[in-house]
Design a protein around this nucleic acid. Structure first.
Length: 485
RNA sequence: GGUCUCUUCGUCUAACGGUUAGGACACCAGGUUCUCAUCCUGGCAAUAUGGGUUCGAUUCCCGUAGAGAUCACCA
């Protein structure tokens, strides 16, 4: 039994961003490698951005990836509730404590005044910052305004003219001047706390030992530390994970391709590949192993082997890993994974014979980068009529007549083979010895045969295709090729 | 603009202050009974820059440059 507790605390604002996935994954690796607990907490304090149903889809996709929680809104736990809007009374209590201690203050400034102030600051090329207008109101003024029912927020009272030292586990000590820090809003006028308050209170109350969050929070880290000090609470270890960048640099954004884990799942990326890929973004195993399962990563994971520099998302490496993991699948698993893609593209229906599909998929397995590729790679198996240019049949500098002759010879040869002997190995035997005995070259026969059977420039070997297609269909396709003009 | 962070092959990254600066992806070439793919072999390719400290710097310190983050009653 130890006290290691980490959490993933997303906002329910839609699909899971790949950068967020990387953050969860590292939190998960750390928690599990330390033998600790992993908790899901929903940070829904921004009601405007909340998207209906996103908590459910979040839990779904995390489950698909293979992340298991020990506590959370969907499974309960001893530190609930795990949804922030169900904890409002708690935040009220703690914000009052801050008020009583003089670590926070009422602010009655209108939005209009704030905007005006900001415009003025911009005009004078100053950093936009709250001007502390309400910081020194006396209690009479406050009581009067409160009685008049004036709207207010509660702001954090940042100490003046000093500096604050914070420790990030990846970067070490960082020093900020408090005068550069804003008196941030802790409690909004609707009585709901901001992230800055809610996250700190919850992390404390939920006994979180290590906070893993994105790099974008580093700038507000000193304010968080100040808040811990105001409460007199112990500060957990903080790990600000570097961001994932686009190919051209810059935050991974929707405009330059897929950013949601759901997009990758739908295209047929495997969780194994996604996990492995994300792990390699900022972490490296001591022994240089680069193909790793979740279990292996957890076994080898160490905070010390993590970097603090941002990483570019390179889809080509993901493709490589995905192809690798697809090749490792056994054919039963792979065909159940691929079948939905074939059905969706209309090549098969739910009644299509499964054994036939398995054979087709087996031939495409080593060519797949992602599951959705199966439709394009294997469509010729399912079509009644192949559509290809006659010239595609021609191999090197043979004439079309030569090609047709060769196909004719093959037709006569294959026609004699018994249905029960129609297997890849036997076909191979017969065709190769025929070519050899007649002193011909493999390509003169195999290329046109392959095109006749597939209609494609690239495909598996003609013997493999013929085997899967069966005698009748194969002979039909050869006949069609011979009669093409 | 202020503040903070980051900087090794194109990309992800390794290297107690001493290595011919290593690996992976991508790319190129060769091999694997036709193409593609797989697989195997080989190749190309990096310490941003200027100063220090040191016998010795990719590694430590300072400056410069570049990139990124942040500066909401969003998270």
């Amino acid at each position: 039994m130890n006290n290691i507790r980490l959490r993933f605390a997303p906002s329910p604002t839609g699909f899971l961003h790949i950068g967020n996935l990387r953050t969860v994954l590292f939190g998960y690796f750390l928690a599990r490698s330390l033998g600790g607990k992993f908790i899901l907490r929903i940070e829904d304090t921004d009601q405007k951005r909340k998207v209906e149903g996103s908590v459910e889809s979040l839990i779904d996709i995390l489950k698909w990836v293979g992340i298991e929680f020990d506590e959370g809104p969907h499974i309960g736990g001893d530190f609930g509730p795990y949804i922030q809007t169900e904890r409002l009374a708690i935040y009220q209590k703690y914000v009052q404590e801050l008020l009583d201690k003089g670590e926070a203050y009422y602010c009655f400034c209108s939005e209009d005044r704030l905007t005006e102030m900001r415009l003025e600051q911009e005009k004078n090329k100053q950093a936009p910052k709250y001007d502390k207008h309400c910081r020194n109101l006396n209690s009479e003024e406050i009581q009067t305004k409160l009685k008049n029912g004036e709207a207010f927020v509660i702001r954090q009272k940042i100490p003046a003219e000093t500096s604050i030292e914070v420790i990030d586990e990846l970067r070490g000590k960082i020093v900020f001047k408090t005068d550069d820090l804003d008196d941030h809003v802790l409690m909004k006028s609707n009585g709901i706390p901001t992230y800055q308050l809610a996250a700190i209170v919850d992390d404390h109350l939920m006994n979180i030992s290590h906070v893993t969050r994105g790099d974008e929070w580093l700038a507000s880290f000193p304010k968080n530390v100040l808040l811990y000090k105001s409460f007199g609470w112990e500060i957990p270890k903080y790990i600000h994970l570097p961001l994932i960048l686009n190919k051209g640099g810059g935050k991974l954004s929707k405009r330059q391709g897929d950013v949601f884990v759901e997009n990758y799942r739908d295209k047929g990326y495997l969780p194994e590949a996604i996990i492995n890929f994300c792990a390699l973004l900022g972490w490296h195993a001591k022994d240089d192993q680069e193909i790793l399962s979740m279990d292996e990563i957890i076994k080898k994971f160490d905070l010390k082997d993590m970097g603090a520099s941002p990483a570019v998302f390179d889809i080509e490496k993901l493709d490589y890993l995905n192809g690798y993991y697809i090749r490792q699948k056994n054919i039963n698993d792979l065909s159940s994974l691929c079948r939905p893609y074939l059905e969706k593209s209309g090549l098969i229906n739910d009644k299509t014979n499964n054994d036939f599909i398995k054979k087709v998929i087996a031939l495409s397995q080593e060519r797949l980068k992602k599951l959705e590729d199966i439709s394009l790679l294997s469509s010729f198996f399912f079509k009644d009529k192949l559509d290809y240019d006659t010239n595609l049949l021609i191999w090197k500098n043979l004439s079309l007549d030569d090609i047709k002759n060769n196909l004719h010879e093959l037709y006569n040869l294959l026609e004699k083979i018994e249905e029960t002997d129609w297997t890849k190995d036997k076909l191979e035997n017969i065709i190769f010895s025929y070519i050899k005995n007649n002193n011909k070259k493999n390509g003169d026969y195999l290329w046109p045969l392959r095109v006749a059977l597939s209609g494609e420039k690239n495909s598996p070997s003609p013997l493999e295709i013929a085997d899967v297609l069966g005698k009748e269909k194969s002979l039909d396709r050869i006949k069609v090729a011979i009669s093409k003009n």
